[in-house]
Design a protein around this nucleic acid. Structure first.
Length: 229
DNA sequence: GCGACAG
DNA sequence: ATCTTGTCGC
């Protein structure tokens, strides 16, 4: 018998699209996103996702941790030539291909994935967390470290404080203070996720530092030099 | 037209 | 993302 694969047998679409076609695809894909709450009690495994670039080589890292213990149980990596340029709002087309290569190696099935980047805080609500969430057909959350777009008032200075981020009249996410008196992060749901659940999950994964443990772990794994592809 | 712009 | 040391503050 076979286990249900993490990724679809049939690719959702091609990569290497022109900026114009890429934007059209994002509009089409974002219409397929769903809002599904995910209770903490239903989470046992969380994954952190990140990509680093060096000498024109992209390295993706997926780290799976137990929840809420935050113990690392799996680390998968993959490398690939960095062919697509960095274009604001089209980050997925630069990092997507190498991420799929790493996802294909995953032995565990995470209940939710935390991405280093935006979810729906995006002009077409198709940030990398939202986009890859469709490929994975799983719950995803975008955890951005800096501002991309939208308006918001500075959140309070206490850990857990947050304020809504609006773009063209719609609330796409929140600016969340994960640590007292530390620069906040930009949180937004990706696929199969509600904003409320996203906030709750991110806080539960952030016991000590500014960034959630899964993302810190993935960032480290993507940055380490030794690589076995 | 001008400025902003995840990683 | 990446290039890079020390340093101020809780």
């Amino acid at each position: 018998m076979t286990v249900k694969p993490l990724l679809p047998e049939k690719p959702l679409h091609d990569w290497g699209l022109s900026p114009e076609d890429a934007r059209k695809l994002q509009t089409t894909l974002s219409a397929q996103l769903t809002d599904e709450p995910l209770a903490l009690d239903d989470i046992s495994l969380v994954a952190g996702v990140d990509v680093s670039v060096k000498d024109n080589v992209s390295r993706a890292a997926i780290v799976v941790l137990t929840f809420p213990g935050m113990e690392i149980i799996e680390i998968e990596r993959a490398t690939r030539p960095t062919d697509y340029p960095y274009v604001p709002t089209l980050l997925t087309f630069r990092e997507g291909p190498v991420l799929l290569k790493a996802f294909a190696k995953l032995q565990n099935r995470p209940d939710v994935y935390l991405f280093d980047g935006m979810g729906r805080i995006h002009p077409r609500q198709a940030g990398i967390a939202a986009h890859m969430g469709l490929w994975l057909n799983a719950p995803t959350i975008g955890v951005g470290k800096s501002h991309l777009l939208g308006n918001y008032d500075p959140p309070g200075n206490e850990k857990g404080d947050y304020s809504p981020l609006f773009y063209k009249g719609k609330q796409l996410g929140v600016v969340l203070r994960t640590r007292t008196n530390v620069k906040p992060v930009y949180i937004s749901p990706g696929n199969r996720m509600t904003l409320a659940s996203a906030i709750e999950i991110v806080m539960a994964c952030t016991p000590k530092y500014r960034l959630p443990e899964p993302i810190r772990a993935a960032h480290n794994a993507a940055g380490d030099d030794d690589m076995i592809d």
